[in-house]
Design a protein around this nucleic acid. Sequence first.
DNA 1: ATACTTAATGACCGAAGGGTCAGCAAGTGA
DNA 2: TCACTTGCTGACCCTTCGGTCATTAAGTAT
Lengths: 209, 209
Amino acid sequence: MASEPKYQRRKEDRPQEIADAAFAAFAEKGYAATRIDDVAKRAGISKGLTYLYYKTKADLFKAVVKNVVVRRVDTLIGNVESTDLSSEDFLRGPLLDFMKKVPGSPIAIVIRLLISEGPRHPDLVDYYYENVVARGLGAISAFVARGVQRGEFRREALEVQPHLFLAPMMLSMIWRLVFSDKPLNTDQLMESQIEMLLAQLKARAEQDK
Amino acid sequence: MASEPKYQRRKEDRPQEIADAAFAAFAEKGYAATRIDDVAKRAGISKGLTYLYYKTKADLFKAVVKNVVVRRVDTLIGNVESTDLSSEDFLRGPLLDFMKKVPGSPIAIVIRLLISEGPRHPDLVDYYYENVVARGLGAISAFVARGVQRGEFRREALEVQPHLFLAPMMLSMIWRLVFSDKPLNTDQLMESQIEMLLAQLKARAEQDK
DNA sequence: ATACTTAATGACCGAAGGGTCAGCAAGTGA
DNA sequence: TCACTTGCTGACCCTTCGGTCATTAAGTAT
């Protein structure tokens, strides 16, 4: 009678599994309060194995953040460039949908980690800035510029800071992270902002300053 | 010849001094990474004394947050109620000034702490919500309602969520906490938002939905 | 001066947890 | 089937740190 093997060797899958387990643990307890033992238990392996694939806890942290980022951002930014909707419809449709999803997505967790641990991992902050923030803001700026070229937006639209699109999304994210039980109609928040911005982008100049 | 006394007994001042030292330490390293020894050293006392005034590290954390909160919030909210400026001037003046200051103030630090440690201190989150967030949002709502009563704002202004006023402030705060070295004209962000909101609040209805 | 109270010290304890490594056993090839 | 490589285990080490407490000495009242 063959006895059950105690474990399987799965060199290929381990890193991803460990990173996933670490993400779950960090999400629940934060970086500092997460024990490597927890991560290992979640991944169904021994503590020692974690150190075979990630030299230190900080390395693991970095892998987790990059992992979550690369998986999602690219597809999302791609949409902005390839859509054939009118600028107005795109704002009210796909962009708004995206923004509504973010506060409840893993991206929010990553942001929480960056806020609390960022100062101790400046290289990670740079990585995140370049690959997410700068690209995201760039995509919005490009989108507005295209709207102007097409004659959908007035010329002054170019001066609107792209950050304004994201501000209510950030507030919603923080709100959910901190006051998870207090109600807030975050969707409406973002809708209102988009409408305000649209009014701003489209309006023909009516008064000179 | 009288020898220097090794220390002075200053029962009255110690709690405040310890809380201040703890705030500085938490601000620099975060809650989990702060050692009670650090706090004691900053306060110029021994570790043991800390425990005479605060039973646990968590107690100290709570004292710090409440401390920073109570000192500032009340005066700020008072302004909203006692001003004699027109609603429009108040928005562009004192409110805007206040919002510009917050991202660089200790309040930002407290928010960072709440974001990272909140889930482990639900009573603190509740305290903060009731004494800062709810009151702040309430003050804004009351301000808008008064503007409507005075005929400065249109009736629909009542439906604008007060959170919209604060969204760019939140984004600016997070930005500075995470990307302290990347430039961003946060003042302009908040100015634009206020102008957009003013347009929204004042506008006579031009179209029915 | 002297006795007394208590703020303050700092050595110490015990638990926790990051990181190591000697050895085990799962897979592999002949 | 047997030798060999290496993914994997888990006991262990050692430092760190929250929290304690016996002791000291600063202030005070008489």
